[in-house]
Design a binder for these strands. Structure first.
Length: 480
RNA sequence: GGCCCCAUCGUCUAGUCAGGUCCAGGACACCGCCCUUUCAAGGCGGCGACACGGGUUCGAAUCCCGUUGGGGCUACCA
């Protein structure tokens, strides 16, 4: 299977800026970074923006930011492929001079029927090499007339075989490989040309990329050879699937790093989760620091089969990281989420920090956590259905809560022990269970049936808010 | 259609390269119990898989072949 690796490597991540950074791309970047960190060498970031139509410069910046946020660090770049077009063309000229590539005057319109015929006949289409055998005179005539042409690589008529780092031996028969286009008729380089020339120039010694490139690899290998460059090692990672087992798409949920960030996923959690989607340290560890991952990482431990992106597990893992955050860190991470919870003005508020600590273990994302903090600062809506149940159980509830409110209005100090004692004493005097008061009180103050220990909540909320909401809730109960 | 890749609990995976220690281990989810004023967190337990069929072998999750299923590629896109 996978062969072992040693020594420094030069790896790269080469996204195209046609959209936000996809989690699949992010995972590829992570593995490249881990590989580079465990073996030494360099990690190059290159932006494949040769498709002018679909590339967006804003996305280039966006992708960099997403990588930085995720905590993926690269050593060199970002290099923009679009700035290297002259270089790509120059290398094609060399190949043509050496007879390793040739001009082809066949139009797509001419080739299309041939391709269809091949498919119908159950064969792989190969360019028939019409122009390879073109008499010199005819070629010259085309040149004079200025006939548009592409440049094709002349593929050796031999099988291509290579040892994929994650899949083992892979072979492609000569018959399925054709003389693919290096230079388009408008003179721009194709993806295949650009990637290989850049990998050569950037000294890339190991290419770890998505499985969608596996079929391109024989072409690339031949190009490396034609360019007289050392051939890097290749490894192809399986794709990430959605819950429907199809390629992860927006239809099935969030797909970009940006979206997870906006949902309040912590970067270290996403990194950890993605790293484990297709790789395992070999033991039962699941929560690993970057250092632990670097120490345990090896290309042999990469899996070869596609994995389903499981949001539930990501959320669990995010919870693990969230709960472990020290107070200062938690406050800082929460800040970007305050605005959407209507808490922007409470930034730095000590009550907010205390509430965050109280709810930390009850939320799985920063967004959830921020939302839970709202009742400490804004009025709440009560759940009528739950309220009716409380009332059905204890018809005297309005009077009891009113009495509790009066007690809390004068409780001194307004602190957990006293608040609890007061409520329990009232319950005992009135012959009701403490729970019969505790749950409605929680509803009165927080609008929820769930939450932190009640007296922590009351103490933190403060006398003024607690007494006011209790009174308002009593009125609401009477109106039910 | 052709070519290539993949196949262990619902999901992520360990085990597969060096066949026996695997009536298959861990995690998420789910269910139950404990803790508990609720919800979480935590602890304990449960449910749950080697896709199928042949072969090789004393012995196969592990090796080989086939079938089935899934995925990728099949552009003058990247």
């Amino acid at each position: 299977m996978a062969s072992s690796l040693a020594g420094p490597v030069r790896v790269r991540f080469a996204p195209s800026p046609t959209g936000y950074l996809h989690v699949g791309g992010a995972r590829t970047a992570i593995y490249n970074e881990l590989l580079r960190a465990s073996l030494g060498g360099a990690f190059v970031l290159r932006i494949e923006d040769t498709d002018r139509e679909r590339s967006d410069p804003a996305m280039t910046r966006q992708i960099q930011q997403a990588l930085e946020w995720l905590g993926v660090r690269w050593d060199e770049g970002p290099f923009l492929q679009s700035e290297r077009l002259q270089r790509h063309r120059a290398r094609v000229d060399e190949l043509v001079e050496q007879g390793r590539a040739y001009a082809c005057f066949c139009t797509p319109e001419r080739l299309a029927p041939l391709r269809d015929a091949a498919v119908r006949a159950g064969r792989t289409f190969r360019y028939p090499r019409t122009c390879l055998e073109l008499p010199a005179a005819e070629a010259a005539r085309h040149r004079e007339r200025g006939t548009p042409f592409v440049v094709r690589l002349r593929m050796p008529d031999a099988e291509v075989r290579f040892a994929d780092l994650v899949r083992g031996e892979v072979a492609f028969a000569a018959e399925v490989l054709d003389d693919f286009v290096l230079l388009r008729s408008d003179g721009t380089p194709t993806y295949h040309l650009s990637v290989v020339v850049d990998d050569v120039d950037m000294g890339v010694s190991l290419v770890l990329r998505g499985e969608d490139h596996l079929s391109n690899t024989p072409k690339h290998l031949r190009l490396f050879e034609a360019l007289g460059a050392p051939v890097p090692r290749f490894g192809h990672l399986p794709l990430i699937l959605g819950a429907d087992k199809k390629r992860l798409s927006k239809r099935t949920g969030a797909t970009s790093v940006e979206e997870f960030r906006a949902q309040g996923i912590l970067p270290e959690a996403l990194y950890n989760y993605l790293a484990l989607l297709g790789w395992s340290p070999g033991d039962d560890r699941e929560i690993l620091s970057r250092e632990e991952m670097v120490a345990a990482f090896s290309v042999e431990r990469l899996g070869g089969s596609a994995s389903v992106f499981d949001v539930e597990k990501l959320l669990w893992m995010n919870g693990q990281y969230l709960w472990a955050l020290p107070p200062d860190e938690l406050r800082a991470r929460l800040e970007p989420f305050l605005a959407e919870a209507g808490l922007a003005e409470y930034r730095g508020n000590p009550r907010l920090a205390a509430a965050a600590a109280l709810h930390q273990v009850r939320a799985r994302t920063l967004r959830e956590l921020a939302a839970q903090l709202r009742p400490y600062f804004h009025d709440v809506a009560w759940d009528d259905e739950a309220s009716r149940k409380y009332l059905a159980k204890e018809p005297r509830l309005p009077e009891l809560l009113a009495e509790l409110g009066r007690g809390y209005a004068t409780a001194e100090p307004f602190a957990v022990e006293l608040l609890e004692a007061a409520l329990r004493q009232l319950a005992e005097q009135q012959g009701v269970k403490a729970g019969a008061l505790i749950h409605p009180t929680r509803m009165a103050l927080s609008g929820s049936t769930a939450g932190p220990p009640l007296f922590d909540l009351v103490a933190l909320m403060g006398r003024e808010t607690a007494v006011r909401r209790l009174a308002a809730y009593v009125e609401a109960l009477r109106r039910l």
